[in-house]
Design a protein around this nucleic acid. Structure first.
Length: 222
DNA sequence: GCGACAG
DNA sequence: ATCTTGTCGC
């Protein structure tokens, strides 16, 4: 009670159909800043698996901002209904994420998603997909690269370089902590890339991954 | 045809 | 993602 789905579509699709749907959903993505004037609740979503992959387990952790203290959380378990195919990750994980979001009392002002946003072959990574369906501002935070090339990232917290794909700046490779691998940040929905980078840094506190992601991962896995 | 390939 | 112990380094 609290989440309003602004768009719905079938999930039982074949890979080719899913790819076609991504082409239609991408037209609804807005990469401009539309965050509330006061951001007080930032969320992290992550997915894990049980029963050797037969069950998908999604978790959402909502933290207060700027304190970054856990204020609400939810977990949802659904039968896994789509295989892992690079480029189609959202069709495997979003159904469970929506189920977890529906259990939340008060929707967050911003959501950090595990995986890419705009930095996707068809510009519709899981963060964009989730954002378009819920109309929540979202950011894609990937631990590894899906597409694109980039120059070396200076080994200092806050340093970042653009991620390029076919002559387009699709994301940023950000160092949240020196001596560790950088993160792949890209806009999901209702936010710009510069803002996305700034928010990932604001949601981080001494570790490579943002606190939102760490909390969500703790709930989705172990 | 040969690699690359979010989680 | 998941299957899994110890081990190298700050």
């Amino acid at each position: 009670m609290g989440l309003k789905l602004h768009r719905a579509h079938p999930w039982d699709l074949a890979p080719a159909q899913a790819m076609a749907l991504q082409g239609r959903l991408r037209t609804w993505v807005r990469l401009v800043d539309e965050l509330p004037a006061e951001v007080r609740r930032v969320a992290g979503v992550d997915v894990g698996f049980e029963e050797r992959g037969a069950v998908t387990r999604a978790a959402i952790a909502i933290l207060s901002f700027p304190e970054l203290r856990l204020v609400e959380s939810a977990v949802a378990r659904l039968p896994t209904a789509f295989p892992y195919i690079p480029g189609l990750l959202s069709f495997r994980e979003v159904p469970a994420i929506l189920a977890a979001l529906e259990k939340i009392c008060q929707p967050p002002d911003l959501v950090l998603v595990d995986g890419q946003g705009y930095a996707h072959p068809r510009r519709l990574g899981i963060a964009c997909h989730l954002g378009v369906l819920t109309e929540l501002p979202t950011i894609g935070v990937g631990k590894t690269r899906l597409i694109g090339t980039h120059p070396p990232v200076p080994d200092q917290r806050g340093a970042w370089v653009p991620l390029w794909d076919h002559g387009e700046e699709v994301g940023a490779v950000l160092r949240t902590r020196p001596g560790t691998k950088p993160l792949f940040v890209s806009a999901g929905h209702r936010i710009s890339l510069p803002s996305a980078v700034a928010w990932v840094l604001r949601c981080s506190a001494g570790f490579r991954l943002p606190e939102t992601t760490r909390q969500a991962h703790r709930l989705a896995s172990g």
